[in-house]
């Protein structure tokens, strides 16, 4: 099978496979459509192969390599033939980029393909900025926002300045830095249900820090963290709107209520 390597210079109209991720698929498809819009605005042809489901991280992080591989094979198969694979999640993109090569090491049928996929895979916002060199998005968001750096994107993929660079170009938006932005929110996949009390302490601290900034909106790049933070904010009665950064960058917040809140 002929494998494509990632192009060295940006193609005029790269063919991008959108890895929707299982959480976005189920809970907040709008994030997926925000990603589609951002990618198309940047000149990409976007497809979302129907056979994709999950990167396999829940099994992988539970020590179940066999099931992790079985699920991950589906992703390797699904994203054959794209110039790039882009996910609106640092965690899922990090799984493919950083962990698939290890997961498939020694697997005759999949190792090379997994490595190749890893090279082509990117987190959405860093893809826009670092690969497509997008400098500005056409969007408006009236309000003060703060930004939480989700752990995998930050530490596995170096996603830090890219969302800030694009957010600063959104009309009407003021970005206020979140103290402790790099501290984990306590989601951690199955961690948050295995150790709910510790997770609760971590997310409570996070929400308190976010509230202290005075920003009305808390953004992040991973829906897992956002479900955790939004769920805590509503439970704690903290007046904070949680949104995926792509929703704001795509200008899709008008008709879309914040995560975990009803339409006004």
């Amino acid at each position: 099978m002929q494998e494509k390597s990632p192009p060295k210079t940006p193609l005029r109209s790269p063919k991008v496979g959108l890895f929707v991720t299982c959480l976005v698929d189920l809970f907040r498809p709008s994030i997926g459509f925000a990603a589609v819009k951002l990618l198309q605005d940047a000149g990409c042809t976007v497809e979302a192969p129907a056979s994709q489901i999950c990167c396999g991280q829940p099994a992988y992080n539970s020590g179940d390599r066999r099931d992790a591989k079985a699920v991950a094979r589906g992703i390797v198969d699904a994203f054959e033939g794209f110039d790039y694979v882009v996910a609106p999640s640092g965690s899922c993109a990090g799984m493919i980029r950083e962990h698939y090569p290890q997961l498939f090491a020694g697997d005759a049928a999949y190792e090379a393909r997994a490595r190749n996929l890893a090279e082509r895979t990117h987190e959405l916002v860093s893809f826009l900025v670092d690969v497509l060199h997008v400098k500005n998005v056409q969007a408006r968001y009236d309000g003060t926002v703060t930004y939480h750096d989700s752990c995998s994107g930050l530490r596995e993929l170096g996603v830090k300045h890219q969302p800030r660079a694009l957010l600063n170009g959104v009309a009407g938006l003021t970005l206020k830095e979140l103290p402790g932005a790099e501290i984990c929110c306590g989601f951690g996949g199955t961690f948050c249900v295995k150790y709910p009390e510790i997770s609760n302490r971590m997310v409570s601290d996070k929400i308190a820090d976010a509230a202290k900034t005075g920003a009305g909106t808390l953004l992040a790049g991973d829906l897992g963290c956002l479900l955790n933070m939004a769920g805590k904010a509503t439970r704690a009665g903290v007046d904070l709107e949680c949104r995926h950064v792509a929703e704001v960058l795509a200008g899709m917040t008008q008709d879309l209520p914040p995560i975990g809140q009803a339409k006004k």
Binding site: D25, G32, A48, A50, N200, G231, K232, R235
Partner: peptide, 24 residues
């Protein structure tokens, strides 16, 4: 079945349709 989650936080509701449904 989500007591570990909802003991301390609310569970945000899904939008209803899935991405792949809408995409199709």
């Amino acid at each position: 079945l989500a007591g570990g989650w909802t003991e301390f936080r609310d569970m945000p509701a899904p939008e209803g349709k899935t991405f792949h449904q809408l995409w199709a």
